[in-house]
Design a protein around this nucleic acid. Structure first.
Lengths: 199, 199
DNA sequence: GCATAACTTTGCATGGTATGCAACAATTGC
DNA sequence: GCAATTGTTGCATACCATGCAAAGTTATGC
């Protein structure tokens, strides 16, 4: 999915990250309102036009690369046979293992979201591709008539993972396995709250 | 919350709806990409500047007024004592009863979302105020330490309601009570799927 | 009624956002 | 090395969004 060891691809990935970090630095320093695409380009040492070759808009630059399942993981899921939610989480674990998320960048994102909660929806929206893929995977188990339920399950799993991700950012003792476990726990807890008839 | 029988307020509400319908008509006719704020203003018979007095951007015009709980409903919730999710749905029912949503407009929204699923996240995002209010209500029951769970519950309830709303749009036999019942059913179903260890 | 306060609509000026295009530069594969 | 491919940039263009002030409308108090 990601490695691609050619110089071009490594540079592209590097630039992509540099742009995101530049955007986050400016937003944390001057506030999200004050950020302009020109500032981000200047801070990242590229032209404005090149900025738009990497991200379609400044919001996308701040949330960074949108995660998605690779072909291997999608194929693995089709042959998996555990409970649906467990298999979805295992697929997520595979992405995280592959992608090796950067703790410092995640910390900056977390700090920004704490300062400006109005960005939280944009951040969740960046998981849309992943949600769509998870919904498709769930549909392949539950049948097409259950698509609305599949989409809701995908939404819940993505939400729980995003929560756990923010916690992981500032807890250095947590590994990827803990991250997934924490998310899984929240889902079971909330699932019981909404299906049972108590408080 | 809404009525306010002065001429100014009625006109304001009327213009607000006219702008939304104009935006939806253009999007359904020419595609979302082709919509410009100038077109919407022209179609609604107002100046471009006035358009921006009503909606902050064209996306907001398409999704229309963002629903939120009124003071009466918020106060009612504090004295309610049913299961959390049931009380949240009762509060939603109160909004729907109050607001009398327009079936034709909802049909246009539904048609647009079917044609362009990439707008679905924007549509859900328009429920953010409502989600925040529901999260606060849930926190008042569960305690501040349960805020992440409260936010997830709010997300799920909003999602289910939005689903049911689209179904309501093209099923004239459904009333507001049925809408809420359908949403409630989906939640119980999904809650069982994700908390139990089967499927 | 009528004067005046409160609010709404509008045009204009301004600056940020985003894309297509074409020229030039860098890298890849051979 | 050299040709093909891909990446970067400046420029032109169109759209998006806001502040401000003038002109028009509605509401209010008497």
């Amino acid at each position: 999915m990601t490695p691609s060891s050619t110089l071009r691809d490594r540079r592209r990935m590097q630039t992509e990250r540099e742009i995101q970090v530049a955007a986050l630095r400016i937003a944390l320093r001057d506030g999200y309102e004050a950020v302009t695409t020109e500032m981000i380009a200047a801070e990242a040492g590229i032209s404005l036009r090149t900025f738009f070759n990497y991200y379609p808009n400044k919001e996308a630059a701040i949330v960074g690369r949108r995660p998605q399942f690779g072909d291997r993981t999608l194929a693995w899921f089709q042959s998996a046979s555990g409970p649906l939610v467990d298999d979805l989480f295992e697929a997520l674990r595979q992405i995280l293992e592959d992608k090796q998320p950067n703790r410092d960048t995640t910390k900056m994102v977390d700090a920004l979201l704490s300062q400006m909660p109005e960005l939280v929806p944009a951040f969740y929206a960046s998981l849309q591709i992943l949600k769509d893929q998870m919904a498709d995977l769930a549909v392949s188990r539950l049948g097409e008539q259950a698509r609305p339920d599949a989409e809701m399950i995908a939404e819940i799993v993505a939400h729980a993972t995003a929560n756990a991700f923010r916690r992981w950012a500032h807890d250095e003792t947590m590994g990827v396995d803990d991250l997934v476990r924490v998310a899984r726990q929240q889902i079971v807890r909330v699932g019981e709250m909404i299906s049972k008839r108590s408080s």
